[in-house]
Design a protein around this nucleic acid. Sequence first.
RNA 1: GGGGAGAUACCGAAGCGGUCAAACGGGGCAGACUGUAAAUCUGUUGGCUCAGCCUUCGUAGGUUCGAAUCCUGCUCUCCCCA
Length: 423
Amino acid sequence: MNFLEELQWRGMIHQMTPGTDALLQDGMITGYIGFDPTAPSLTIGNYVQIMLLRLFQDAGHRPIILMGGATGRIGDPSGKDKERELKSYDELDHNLEFQSRQFARFLDFEGPNAAIIVNNLDFYRDMNVLDFLRQVGKTLTVNYMSSKDSVKKRLETGLSFTEFSYQLLQAYDFQCLYTQHDCRLQMVGSDQWGNITSGTEFIRRNVDGKAHAVTTPLLTKADGSKFGKSERGNIWLSPELTSPYQFFQFWLKADDADLRNYIRYFSLRPREEMQALLDRVDEDPISVKAQLAEELTVRVHSRAAYESVLSVSELLFNKKANRDTLLGLDETSLATVAQEIPSFQIERDQLAAGINIVDLLAEHTSIQSSKGEARRSIKGNAIAVNKEKIKDHEYRVDATALLHGKYLMVENGRKNKFIIVTQ
RNA sequence: GGGGAGAUACCGAAGCGGUCAAACGGGGCAGACUGUAAAUCUGUUGGCUCAGCCUUCGUAGGUUCGAAUCCUGCUCUCCCCA
């Protein structure tokens, strides 16, 4: 399958430089996407980029993952309305290490078009300021750089020289990849267009080459908010940071209106199957959503993780699930539930002495962030212990409430469920 | 270097000496309705030992019985002139 055709069909092309089509017809080519290690793990926001690389590789091309060991130290002003806090070198190194390993799951690092990981810190490590200013800074005028949207917006609100320089780094990165790896294509979100064209400009002027770029439309949600954030922050691809259960729930709780985009951006099913899903969105959004959630949970985590999440989700969200079903659960099932949903440990002795519900929510666990909030939630009829709504903020929980002498289920609202394990 | 404007809770934005934990909008959270969706309606949205107290209106001081509101220094941002 032709790469551009594939993207076109999925609606993943925003713009591209002239001649990109011809380049891609020309046998195996090398293309890259950059990732700055500003977060401890890749997120589903990054997953759009990962999909691009994957589709690129599936089409027979060679993907380069460019880790931003250098650019991460600077901070990209694109799409940011204010100057960013710089992360420490230690933190960035650690993130880079972790994220690099995550790619193993999504791309093929073997074979004729094996993916490779390059760190752009290598391009700058041995360069001093004067070299940089002469070799890199001389290529573009400040006038040209300032006319980029990403910079223009920030000239109103303030932009440090550091962040202003970011596009020089990204442009020079492209040049280095071009000369060292014969990389002729950069793919990325449309907010990066300015930085990319600086890159093709570098290659044209400095090494007399021709490089190309494709951008994808930024994935936005129907309600206008940014894709990839849940109420409680980022959805990470690492199971330690976002459990498979939460990951699965994220897709299941997605807005119907976003479903078509999600299928087109994230599914790797054969085209006929994808089309069948798309066709069924209107009549049966719930089952389509479930299938997408399944596909992604299996791919990002594992089949086993999905099975476990599914059984737990069905148990917890089953319409008929009431106090009796909960009490009827055997200990193994409860243990599985405890593994999947967020859980907290407390001392058995402490609980035996009786714990006030407000303290339990806000102090012994972080189900609520303050006691005031806990009280409000109780007043608003949001808190349930073992499927029983709590009406009184003086309510005390003690050992008699424990299921199988060990577990306690606490719900905040209908969707946020927690297990407290005593030990 | 000179002149002007500004910094308010998650964001935007009122307030300009007491009745201000601070209007209003957005966002968040919860309740009802639903499909663990959307839309809609309702409640709530600094902390606590909660009819009271404590900490918050860039920062440090000062005036006052009393300051987000007045004065001074400082920091930062934006605009104009050189």
